[in-house]
Every structure is written in structure tokens, then in C-alpha cells.
Design a binder for these strands. Sequence first.
DNA 1: CGTGTGACTGACC
DNA 2: AGGTCAGCCACAC
Length: 112
Amino acid sequence: MSQYYQQIWAQIAAIPAGRVTSYGRIAERAGLPRRARLVAQALRNAPPEMQLPWFRVLRADGSIAPASTHAGHDEQIARLTAEGVLVKNARVDLERFGWSLSLDELLWSPEH
DNA sequence: CGTGTGACTGACC
DNA sequence: AGGTCAGCCACAC
């Protein structure tokens, strides 16, 4: 298995409940810029017993990645909703629920 | 070793 | 708002 998976999985596992992020951001945090597709691959190949919060990973625009025909699609929406993330039209507002782009951090950060 | 394939992205149109 | 396109890169053939 790829040596990259470990660091990708670690970053996914680190997403706080109630927050979401994108494939691209996970890749960046894992030290693998521009390799969003590798994140998707790592996610697909993740051992189920690892119980990663895969549902907190969305596309860059906040939409649900798996096709609506895919089994995981509905489950992803359900699990996000269950932890307080508002999903409308298979889409999440990243300004509100995005990890490290939250309204809180923007307001409280000394830099901004 | 060449090719096709994505649970992707940003830029364009 | 939605579609196309060219990059992208590890992986399966």
C-alpha cells in the first residue's frame, strides 16, 4: 500500500466533528499539495475498521463527492446532518462549516 | 513501459 | 448555475 495513505488518513482523522474540509485541503495538510485525487484514492482504500470520518471530506465547492447513485452519497448527507452540519442540495456552506475557515476563526484570529 | 481511470481542482466559457 | 478542459498522479492492467 502507498506510503502516502498514512499521512492522509491522519489528516482526515483530525477533522473535528461538525466541521468539513475538501480533498485538496487534506492533501495540503498532509504535505502533498495538488494531490486531491490521491486523497480520494486513500479514502476509497481506507480499512473500514479505521472508522475514519470520511463523510467530513467534500469537494472544493462543498458538494458531496460520491455520485448520487453511489451508496455512500445518502449516508454522507445523513451523517453530516446528524452532527449539525447543514446540507442543502447535496452541498455544504464551507464559509460556515469549513475547517479552519470557520466564522469563529476569521473573527478571532489576530492576523485577520 | 504505454494507457486509461478517478469519492479532484481551478480556470474558462 | 452548470458544462468543459487541461492538469494532476498513483494505480491497475
